[in-house]
Design a protein around this nucleic acid. Sequence first.
DNA 1: GCACCTTTGTGCACGCGTTCACAAAGGCAT
DNA 2: ATGCCTTTGTGAACGCGTGCACAAAGGTGC
Lengths: 256, 256
Amino acid sequence: MATGRNHRPATRSRGIPEATVARLPLYLRALTALSERSVPTVSSEELASAAGVNSAKLRKDFSYLGSYGTRGVGYDVEYLVYQISRELGLTQDWPVVIVGIGNLGAALANYGGFASRGFRVAALIDADPSMTGKQVAGIPVQHVDDLESIVHTNGVSIGVITTPGGAAQQVCERLVGAGVTSILNFAPTVLQVPEGVDVRKVDLSIELQILAFHEQRKAAEDLSRRDEEGPRGVAVPEGGRGEQGGDGDIPAVMPA
Amino acid sequence: MATGRNHRPATRSRGIPEATVARLPLYLRALTALSERSVPTVSSEELASAAGVNSAKLRKDFSYLGSYGTRGVGYDVEYLVYQISRELGLTQDWPVVIVGIGNLGAALANYGGFASRGFRVAALIDADPSMTGKQVAGIPVQHVDDLESIVHTNGVSIGVITTPGGAAQQVCERLVGAGVTSILNFAPTVLQVPEGVDVRKVDLSIELQILAFHEQRKAAEDLSRRDEEGPRGVAVPEGGRGEQGGDGDIPAVMPA
DNA sequence: GCACCTTTGTGCACGCGTTCACAAAGGCAT
DNA sequence: ATGCCTTTGTGAACGCGTGCACAAAGGTGC
């Protein structure tokens, strides 16, 4: 399948925008669902709706991959699944190690979505000697002393860190030293990594805090709206900190 | 931007950019660490380094909150901790429900970082009757039939969904119907929610796929570079995209 | 073959976020 | 006080991502 294998000067990099890359897995999931229902083709409008994005954005995203659609018809589901999988590098096998087999590490090891698409948990690693040898999700836990040899013999390039925050940086350095160049970090720590190593972080606490911010804003908005409509009303106790009225919210600059 | 610009309280709450809000928890964590070490003040350069961001960005972020720094000195750690906490709404208590007590749900229930900052697991909910009554992380699991009353009696406005993908949308609708307006979704599903409801998603599989993309790109680059220097190997698979600095800083989730 | 209808692919403009660079502001030494 | 040194706060430029709107392209029916 010659997919536009143009050997043009690579100077003008046909690099796919990061934002697009982040959406490709979303499209892929929606397409896989369609594929399982044996839907042959799909329009940008339908697919965009399923993926929760705007159709123009989806078409632009696909345009970075090439012209895989047929005007007047839409996209061939199977073909698109293949193209996106290939672009994301999912046609090959990615051995992954999970370091830190606590509650979260064990949950990830058991997570089905892991193996579903090219990813394979090659090893579980923990620093606790009493964990060594135990089976989690059918995989034996190995001691962190052997981290380097495990990474090396399995050809691991992607590591998942689910250790406590204090251990994360050290584990990260050992992973990188052993040859890992992509890290998915669940520990509440900002990892310092050398050039060329990709880090993505998943932080529960941060997500909740962002939600709390919006939640607070919504509450404040409701209150002030109610206040506008009926300037009367019982003073809401509010734990001592008045946050909503319109005073003391934006610091520094006090509106008259 | 001179002072005396934002005088209109109407849309004032739109003040803080979303990107800034997403970084505030990061700053807060770094500041908390400094606070525990009794560091009195910190410069934008130091704090930025600790949070893994650029110092100019940090200063601009803080400028949205107000002028809390002292020129020539830096920022007062304790004061900044308080201001950011207040801005994020962490000075109040946020009851949270977790729906779907499988491996992941249980891991989250046990996660310490939860309670650390204003968040409290008010209830665990699962659809499996055999789970009902069991204790997870010291909290009894309740049946999903009682979802609405649980949300109502606890005044829950934030829900965490850790169900299988197939159940997520339905659970989401029930949560929203019961009054939840912020949802943290771990299920591999695009949730459809009405206006006014915030959804943030955390998707393991997507994160890994994004890493795989970059990993593949790095591998292709290495190959083509080696190929340039000494074209003696086998044919390069092609697919090596252009250069693009690794960022490793894109948050794991996207705002809804 | 031709006209019509549908849907893609994209040029363009706009807005947000990032980064640079520097003037203003505060502290400190003299 | 005064001048120097440090660091903040922010105007301005830039780049990326998004969404609109439409021409081009392919299929279909007559």
